[in-house]
Design a protein around this nucleic acid. Structure first.
Lengths: 139, 139
DNA sequence: CAGCTCCTTGACGTTTACGTCAACGTCAAT
DNA sequence: ATTGACGTTGACGTAAACGTCAAGGAGCTG
């Protein structure tokens, strides 16, 4: 009955493995101020919050955001935790900006996917023609 | 009546401006074998096909693809123009792979957008609370 | 013909996001 | 007590994707 809520924690290696990055990456992010895991002695101990944050960071990366942009956001997140009105307003404005960007990306993605599936369709049609008999090549 | 179909063409500068990149970028892409504009004397002359191709390249970039990946695809596009069966099959396979990836991104994007709008909503709620009276801070 | 604008190639610089040692500490197992 | 697996910091290396000169040519314009 000593430790209630045995909160899960990870070492660098464990977390890096789980997230599919290297330990170097995690240390780099820390040096860049994107995360700040606890220390036990000299060793890093990552908690659930760190893990969530890392997932967000990696997602941002998948969307082509730079670490600088990502940091800007996570910093605001922290700043807004204080619930100060101005911080909240700044964060909200930025979030709406981001949401707009994401919606634009969605549209872009839709167009691209449409194009890709269209070309794939043309491929299939052409292949069907080719294997029809010997190949009615040129009409 | 000499030139029928006065096909539109662009100089580096014009095209760079239109696409929102620098001329350096266009020359770099050429050196990387992503485009190969005509030459009139020493000057590059970009046609509609080059322009379309560049738009595709830039879209790929927006999705975080590397130039190497992009090149792989545009090369296949060219290769498949010959309509050889094996080329077509390779292209088709790759296209389906890409389509799958794009769909995964769509899902990822949806999740992210949902999270962002959710946090924004929380912000608004909190702001409303703050400006309600003076601020019913802690329940 | 001088000046301006736009183009050319070539070479070197820069930033981002890590990779890759090196040199060392620590803990458990053999 | 040594080995091995894991951790630490620090310094240096690197690939990608351009940026930034430098040095020059071609064509128009006053």
């Amino acid at each position: 009955m000593t430790a209630t809520r045995e909160a899960r924690s990870w070492t660098v290696g464990e977390l890096a493995d789980e997230l599919g990055v290297t330990t170097r990456t995690l240390r780099f992010y820390e040096a860049e101020g994107l995360i700040s895991p606890r220390r036990v002695g000299a060793q890093r101990v990552y908690g659930a919050r760190d893990r969530t944050r890392l997932k967000l960071i990696l997602r941002g990366k998948r969307f082509g955001m730079t670490l600088a942009e990502i940091r800007e956001i996570v910093d605001m997140y922290d700043g807004a935790a204080s619930s100060e009105q101005r911080q909240l307003e700044t964060l909200l404005a930025r979030l709406e900006e981001i949401a707009g960007d994401l919606r634009a990306r969605q549209a872009d993605l839709r167009r691209t996917l449409a194009e890709v599936t269209d070309v794939a369709e043309q491929c299939r049609t052409r292949l069907a023609e080719l294997s029809a008999t010997a190949g009615p090549a040129l009409p």
